[in-house]
Every structure is written in C-alpha cells, then in structure tokens.
C-alpha cells in the first residue's frame, strides 16, 4: 500500500468520483435532479472511504491522447477476443483435440499494479493463453499450444501488442 501525498490523493479522489458517477447514471438511467444529487454525494463518500484501496490512476488520465489510446486499446482487445474465440471453437470442434500445453514466463516493463492487472486480464482473453501468476514483474502464462519456451520470444508472441499501448496510457 503506497503512501500518497495530498495532491495525489485529491486527483485520485476526483477520478474515482467521476467513474462512480458514470456508473450511477448508467444504473439509474435518468437525469432527474434529485437522482444526480444523491449519486454525486454517494460517489464522493465512497471514493473518500476507499481512496487507499482503489488507486487506479491520477487525473492525467483525462488527457485526450490517453483517451485516444484507450479507445484504440479497446479495438485491439476486441479483435484479439474474437480471434481467441474462433481459436477455441476450432480446437474444441476438432475430434483429435490439437493441444500442446505448457507454462511459459516473460518479464514486463509495466510498473503500477493496476496496469499489470489490465495486462493479465487481456492476456487471459487472447488466443490460447491464461495468466496463472504475477511475481513482481514476471508473468507466468499457461499456453495451450506452446511454440517457444524462450521468455523473449514468448513476450513478442503474447503480450507485445498490448504492452506498447498500455505503456502510453499508464
């Protein structure tokens, strides 16, 4: 749990409040004044109480360049998700089950916990890979069809396309 200065706390508080407010609006699906006031109060109280737990990102996340990269990441991720599902469908429907499972590892250049979590979730949903554990900066990946056990080549095959976008966001 990192110790935060006051300005960091303030910017994280603002980011958390804005995200919780968006979720509230999506839940209630109404723009009546009393709903908005209650939602603003609730999201500010909750983000004040949980400020040490959910340290996702500072206020610089609202930079337009970063928002552009986030939308680009969404499209890259959706393309990988569709590919991985076609891959699963092919393997499941083939009668001989073409698999060659094993566990590989690689190192990442990401530093914050939140970005590592996003990368791990993305890896789990891309073709043939499943994150088992993260120890400091080493990812252990179960790969359904191992092509290489060398960490560098495995990194190029599995995670490079996501990491180079995530490094620009976080």
């Amino acid at each position: 749990m990192p110790t935060l200065t006051f300005s960091e706390k303030l910017s994280r508080f603002i980011v958390n409040s804005v995200f919780m407010m968006l979720v509230w609006i999506a839940f209630t699906s109404s723009f009546a004044t009393h709903e908005l006031i209650v939602g603003a109060l609730t999201s500010m109280i909750i983000s004040y109480l949980s400020i040490r737990l959910f340290t996702c990102c500072t206020i610089s996340i609202f930079n337009p360049v970063k928002i552009f990269y986030m939308i680009w990441y969404l499209f890259v991720f959706l393309w990988a998700l569709i590919n991985s599902n076609l891959d699963v469908a092919r393997r499941v429907l083939t009668p001989s089950l073409p698999i060659n499972p094993g566990i590989v590892k690689f190192k990442t250049k990401l530093t914050t916990n939140y970005s590592k979590m996003v990368l791990a979730n993305s890896i789990t949903l891309t073709p043939g890979t499943l994150t088992i554990d993260i120890v400091d900066d080493t990812f252990y990946i179960h790969w359904i069809d191992v092509k290489t056990t060398d960490p560098e080549k495995a990194f190029t095959d599995i995670a490079e396309q996501f990491e180079k976008i995530l490094l620009k966001i976080f």
């Binding site: 998700l81 991985s84 599902n85 699963v88 469908a89 393997r91 499941v92 429907l93 089950l97 698999i99 499972p101 789990t124 949903l125 043939g128 890979t129 499943l130 088992i132 179960h142 359904i144």
Partner: peptide
C-alpha cells in the same frame, strides 16, 4: 462451445482456457 470445451478438454488448465474465453 465453451461448455463443450469444458466437457472435452483433458485437464483443468485447458478447461479454464476454453471456458473463460468462450463464455465471456
């Protein structure tokens, strides 16, 4: 297909692979 993958795959890690991606 996700449920079929859970039924057919040989061990738990491969089952998790098929189950997670396809049901998501």
């Amino acid at each position: 297909l996700g449920a079929l993958g859970i039924f057919r795959m040989p061990d738990i890690y491969n089952r998790l692979q098929a189950g997670t991606k396809a049901t998501t």
